[in-house]
Design a protein around this nucleic acid. Structure first.
Lengths: 336, 336
DNA sequence: TTGTAGGCGTTATCAG
DNA sequence: CTGATAACGCCTACAA
């Protein structure tokens, strides 16, 4: 039940010194073909696996990066994680994926753990505002923000063009003749929550739509809160004719609320979601979305992080969004 | 940009030896209150964080477990991961989450990496059949299977009662008067694929339903394959009146195929999915599912793994399934 | 090209 | 209760 075959065993079996063995294994050119062959044979025979801990202890590089996302169960972040992980793998880094679960305390727990594991760098979709913890982190280890940012941090980030996305959605709904759009936003403590909210307010004004503050609600980026918010919007005296949800889980919640009220999506009420999720196109009706490429976001973040780790100072990246019109806001509207 | 404050610095500042410092830090009772206080003060002042690598190198325990799931983007596995992770945290273990992406090669890459990181144990939802790699693994490090198993391995596992679940679904559909049920199964190379398939065949026979082999298709547990399979089933000469999908992504694929054919779910064709996903109840119509508790599966697997790590020999666990009837198979059926 | 030896940060042993 | 000191497994000068 234990392997404990060390480099010494390999050296002994190969009949060379540990130094030579180490050199062969790390691809040091100063090795004879004969030595290489014998070492590799010994490695294979013993099933030797170098100890990453010892190696990184000695060489001060762990070839490990931490990825802290806010909610694994949100498909958007699952895609981000997937993209980041694949990119890391290509550069032979191992990704430690941790799930903050939209909880600042768990976020801190895992950051602590990353530090303790001496990861070479961290990608994080930060939870809250300015935290002393995060502040300290930024000066300790290479750091990159993904999807979200925190004000006042000089940290490279990969984000979506939130303003553009919201704009595309509002313009589209305005085109369809809506004047009362209900907005289901995220928390103001999260940068994407703020950016999307502010963009919505501006877009509504620009398109001269109804600025009734009762049309603006907010949730916590999770599905239950989307249902609650939609319910609130729809139960008003003068309900909106279209709903815009600031992320996909809340859109799903809204979906349920609409169905429970017997409202037909795409005719009674239009629905648009920020975030595209694979199965949104399989729904009935398929959902109109502001799409951004989650996997690209993840892989880009990883690229930036590796840049930082290697001493470069990469620029932040803002990824474009794209409006994908589907039937949830594409069919014939029913008369009010 | 580097912390590099070691236990020596702490010891120096506290005015005690590293030995004492180490004892204080690891909660060894043989320490004086005075020493404890000074050490803790020094730790706080220096912002010292023990080096997990060095610690585990010396103590032969990394307090780290590897969790290898087959597809992060499948919400079922995201839930499993979440459950496992939370359980680990409670026992102060760190979880390395890796994503095999339904690809045996990536599975091996990550297993290799786990071994190299000297994790204390591994939870895996295995991909393929008997692999030499896995075989070697089982004798090297504590191992637990989750969701899936591999034949011929004496490894504790946590699985669902697949036969029960399929039975519940088929019985329900038979009750509703269906005689031709189309089955969208998973690959035979995966244990759940086999178990659910075999259970389906048995259940169909037991309920004296149509055993037409053309009613049985299979995909790869991902959504695109579900759409293809549904399409094939529905385009036959005598299409089924109900569809049973062996996992949720494939059910989503089937959903899209049905919509594209203009078939109404729950009246034209009934649809039942194995796996419950939070938002399945928000769909229109809400989906009937064979539900099993993914989070419980994850946390149970972690419990078993920690048992193995601590030298116990836990029994495998089979979790029950539960049929949740919703409108996708709960409304009035349309006459054929 | 190869071997030897010191040290990365910790914990464990063994005297005091 | 505390302080030295020897490992843990590996890499990397330095010498040969």
């Amino acid at each position: 039940m234990d392997s404990t075959v060390t480099i010494k065993d390999v050296a002994a079996l190969a009949g060379v010194s540990v130094g030579t063995t180490s050199r062969v294994l790390s691809g040091n050119p100063s090795t004879s073909p004969a030595a290489r062959e014998r070492v590799h044979a010994a490695v294979a025979e013993l099933g030797y696996r170098p100890d990453a801990r010892a190696r990184s202890l000695r060489s001060a590089r762990s070839q490990t990066v931490g990825l802290l996302i806010s909610d694994v169960r949100n498909p958007f972040f699952a895609d981000v994680a997937h993209g980041a992980e694949q990119a890391a793998l290509r550069s032979s880094y191992v990704t430690l994926l941790a799930n903050a679960n939209e909880d600042p305390k768990q976020q801190d727990t895992y950051l602590e753990s990353f530090l303790t594991q001496r990861v070479d760098g961290i990608i994080i979709a930060p939870q809250g505002e300015e935290s002393a913890h995060l502040r300290a982190l930024a000066t300790t280890v290479p750091l990159v923000f993904v999807d979200r940012t925190v004000d006042g941090f000089e940290v490279p980030s990969v984000t979506s063009d939130n303003a553009l996305g919201i704009d595309q959605a509002v313009a589209h709904l305005a085109d369809r003749g809506h004047t009362r759009i209900g907005y289901i936003g995220g928390p103001r403590s999260i940068s994407t929550g703020r950016a999307r909210h502010d963009a919505f307010v501006r877009a509504v004004a620009r398109h001269r739509l109804d600025t009734d503050p009762g049309l603006i609600t907010s949730g916590d980026f999770r599905s239950a809160s989307g249902a609650v918010a939609a319910e609130r919007l729809l139960s008003g005296a003068q309900p909106p004719t279209a709903l815009l949800a600031a992320d996909s889980p809340m859109a799903v919640g809204a979906l349920g609320a609409l169905r429970r009220r017997g409202l037909r999506i795409g005719s009674d009420v239009d629905l648009v979601a920020f975030d595209d999720i694979e199965w949104f196109s399989e729904l009935d009706p398929p959902l109109t979305v502001v799409s951004h490429d989650a996997q690209a976001m993840g892989s880009t973040a990883m690229r930036l992080l590796l840049d930082v780790i290697e001493g470069r100072t990469p620029e932040s990246v803002v990824l474009p969004t794209r409006l994908v019109v589907r039937e949830s806001s594409g069919g014939a509207r029913r008369q009010a």
